[in-house]
Simulated assay, not measured.
Amino acid sequence: MKVITPHDWKPWPTPREFQKLCSNADGLFHYAATALQWIEDQIDEHGRACQSWVFNNLTQEGGLSQLEDLYKLVLTSFENIDNLPRNEQRRRARLASFRHVMGTVLVLQEQLTISQIIALLADIPMGNLDVRHFLQQMRSVLIPSTITLFEEATPQIHKSFRDYIMGVHAPAEFHILTGHAHFLTAKSCLEDVVKAGSQSDVVVRYSARHWCQHLRKAVEGGTTWEDERMWNLLGEMVKEAVFDVWKAYSWSIFLDVAAAGWGLLKVRSKYEGES
């Protein structure tokens, strides 16, 4: 069994704290695994400073008896939406980046490792979010606790968290909309495509194979009509220099660009007609 408590913290947790955690888990392994991973993350992030409050947060007001409460605790450890922000613009940027990264992880069409996901999402400005640090912070809901090599791990999101974050129970600030997640992922893929040779072969292959699938699903949800960057990226895709690099991955790239562009035009026309 992996030891997460620093050797000089004994006796911690106290028997009472440990018993409370066991009682809250109530035989549900995923609760216990997620809670312990979250505690480990807080130790890594805050060191000894968290010793006095980490179990209190887990056991406040009679304890967290449901996974939804635990998931909200994990999310608000990233951005505490219950408190007024010091900088509203920065909070909006962080939450938008949260939805971008988490949404991409949720809608990936094939498995990628953490390091490959970081490469795929290179279009997220570091000033908004350090993607690697964020994924490390969210590992309690992304990666099984048995995995030790973080960047080589493949996210395996539990169905209960997927249902929570994409359903009606998650706070609106963290809620992932499927169509919007596909749109942001498609745009990240296209950013990789037009920056030929800047990413690993696996990321290149994923982007070339799946950008259109993501975009089509986004268009079906009507989420893409007003994004000018997407139009610019599609224009870049049909340039000879870009096509010469990516034709090895997708011979149907012109058909994909045409189909996606036509879908975007139909959605844009629909919204302009209603305005």
Rank of each mutant, 00 (worst) to 15 (best):
N57V: 04
Q60K: 15
E61F: 14
E61D: 15
G63M: 05
G63A: 12
L64F: 07
S65N: 15
Q66F: 12
D69G: 15
D69I: 01
D69K: 02
L70S: 02
L70A: 04
Y71M: 00
Y71I: 02
Y71E: 01
Y71D: 05
K72M: 05
L73N: 11
L73R: 08
V74A: 04
T76C: 10
S77K: 00
S77A: 07
E79Y: 11
E79W: 05
I81L: 00
N83L: 15
P85W: 00
N87T: 06
E88M: 08
E88C: 07
E88P: 07
R94K: 15
R94D: 01
R94Q: 14
A96C: 10
S97I: 03
S97H: 06
F98M: 03
H100V: 02
V101F: 10
T104A: 15
T104P: 00
L106S: 12
L106V: 07
L106D: 09
V107D: 04
L108W: 09
Q109T: 05
L112H: 09
L112P: 01
I114L: 13
Q116V: 11
I117A: 00
I118E: 10
I118H: 13
I118L: 08
L120M: 07
L120Y: 12
L120D: 05
L121I: 02
D123W: 05
M126R: 13
G127C: 02
G127N: 10
N128I: 00
L129G: 09
H133I: 09
H133P: 03
H133Y: 12
F134P: 01
F134G: 02
F134T: 00
Q136D: 10
Q136E: 11
Q137Y: 01
M138G: 03
V141K: 03
L142A: 07
L142C: 00
L142G: 03
I143L: 10
P144R: 14
S145M: 14
T146G: 08
I147K: 14
T148H: 13
F150G: 05
F150Y: 10
E151S: 14
E151G: 04
E151F: 05
A153P: 04
A153Q: 06
T154D: 03
P155Y: 14
Q156W: 08
I157S: 05
I157K: 03
I157T: 12
H158A: 14
K159G: 06
K159Y: 13
K159Q: 14
S160I: 07
F161R: 04
F161I: 10
R162K: 13
R162T: 15
D163G: 04
D163R: 07
